[in-house]
């Protein structure tokens, strides 16, 4: 069984009584251990698909199973599923609570989920993304964009997810920092044995990172690419 199994997924948003069809009959399977790319123009529904998989958008129709567990629409993720599906958001300036120090942002998920030794785990999590323990006493606004994104990655890894969802994790960052973040993600993926779903509008990022990818357009999957095709630059071709 695949790690993510989605068939005939539909999402409509009601916008002033006009139903807007965001996702139309998406069927996709994502295997364990792979990096699956989603690319397409803005508004094509790739972020919506990611938020459905993340459990943030629960208003959908169709069938979905995550990590071998059938998921029902309108149901909040709990327990193991909630811990094992995590996400890194696009904008590192908006994904960290502006009034919480880094230490609290990392410690609270551990406490809430009842993990032992939270202080030691926070230090380890910071070390995983290349920070010393002293950064725990800072506020997000005291860090640069790339630093914040590394903190956001550390937070996403705290609960040891099996599936990490990446919503354009580098598009808000400088070119030089983008490579650093992508390399960090590749390293961490190998270390923790995760699977990635990577959303990007940048075909180069998808080509560099992904084993398989799908191009989306107007709420549908328009094309899928395997690794040889991606290596040949198929994602960039229109």
């Amino acid at each position: 069984m695949s790690l993510v199994d989605i068939s005939d997924l539909n999402v409509t948003f009601r916008d002033q009584d006009v139903g807007r069809h965001i996702l139309r009959g998406i069927t996709v399977a994502i295997e364990e251990g792979e990096t699956f790319g989603l690319l397409g123009p803005s508004g094509c529904g790739k972020s919506t698909l990611l938020r459905v998989i993340a459990g943030l958008n629960r208003d959908w129709h169709g069938s979905m199973s995550l990590l071998g567990e059938a998921v029902a629409p309108r149901r909040r993720f709990t327990g193991k599923l909630r811990r094992q599906v995590q996400m890194v958001f696009q904008d590192p300036y908006a994904s960290l609570h502006p009034r919480h120090r880094i230490g609290r942002a990392l410690r609270e998920p551990l406490v809430v989920n009842g993990l032992d030794n939270p202080d030691k785990r926070v230090t380890e999590a910071l070390a995983e993304v290349g920070f010393g323990p002293d950064v725990a006493s800072r506020y997000p606004h005291q860090l640069s964009g790339g630093q914040r994104q590394r903190i956001a990655i550390a937070r996403a890894l705290l609960l040891r997810p099996k599936l990490l969802l990446l919503d354009e994790p580098t598009s808000a960052l400088d070119m030089s920092v983008q490579a650093e973040i992508l390399n960090l993600l590749v390293t961490l993926k190998a270390r923790f044995g995760m699977s990635f779903v990577l959303v990007s509008h940048d075909p180069d990022v998808i080509g560099h990172m992904c084993d398989r990818a799908a191009r989306m357009a107007e709420g549908r999957i328009a094309a899928t690419f395997d690794r040889p095709a991606l290596a040949a630059g198929a994602a960039a071709a229109r």
Binding site: S95, E108, P109
Partner: peptide, 8 residues
């Protein structure tokens, strides 16, 4: 959203 994903 991030807090919700952490189970908070």
């Amino acid at each position: 959203a991030a807090a919700e994903m952490m189970g908070i």
